[in-house]
Amino acid sequence: MKQHKKGLALWLAAILLLLAGALLTGSPGRTESVQAAMRDAVLHDVNRIGLFGLGDVSPGLISAFVVTAFLLILAVCLRLFVIPKFQYVPGKLQLLLEEWVGLFDRMARGSSPHRHSFLGVYIFSAGTYIFVGTLFELLGLQGITVHGHPITLPAPLSDVNAAIALGTLSYLFILAGGIVGNGARGMGKTLKEFSLPLSMSFRLFGALLSGLLVTELVYYFVSLSFVLPVVVGVLFTLLHALIQTYVLTMLTAMYYGEVSERPHKA
């Protein structure tokens, strides 16, 4: 009992010591104002990163490459070491993988029962990318800008170019499904929804950007950096990841099923 009390006292003392140290040392000085930080978080026009000498790109693109590389390496590891050991009665990891694949497969079948094989693959890939890409900002990986400053790599979809790319790609995918499944009628149905790429892109961008801005704001001020980041950084990001994954994949599957369905003859 005495030992427990002593341990508790030591733990509290260590926390107080670290807090005092953090407050007394202060930040090393601002390299940019909060306005500039927020503006750069939206536009990515100052803190750019060089891409193998091909030019300067926004950090979101580097994040996208890192996320893709991580997912592909993970997929290779799972393919080599986990999938060959699959059993008819699944273990925990197998169950997770099956549920991960099955979730998008079921969504594709449910939204587009007549044509769903490629739809399942696309929403699986897009959903995984959005979910992992959104959680990526929690890692706080660092990149070096062309000016030599270290910056934290943001979520890929907080870059407007990434959001536009995913939104327009989803729209083109829906358009292709409409043409293949329903010919000119499908194309007409898809083109009728001309606002879809814009809404998809900016929904993603807005959602991810808002999270990024709040996180930037919280971390900009030292006084807000205690306890609050646990809620803002982890819970909100997790919630974001789930919601955005669900929204984009569900919308894509729903529109795909709608435009590729052949009209029923009366």
């Binding site: 997929a75 693959v121 699986f124 990318y129 890929p156 170019n161 990434a162």
Partner: peptide, 19 residues
Amino acid sequence: LLHWMNLAILTGGLYFLLY
């Protein structure tokens, strides 16, 4: 376009390796 390429690589890779 680079993001599209990235997504195409990811989609193909995830399809063959996992899905």
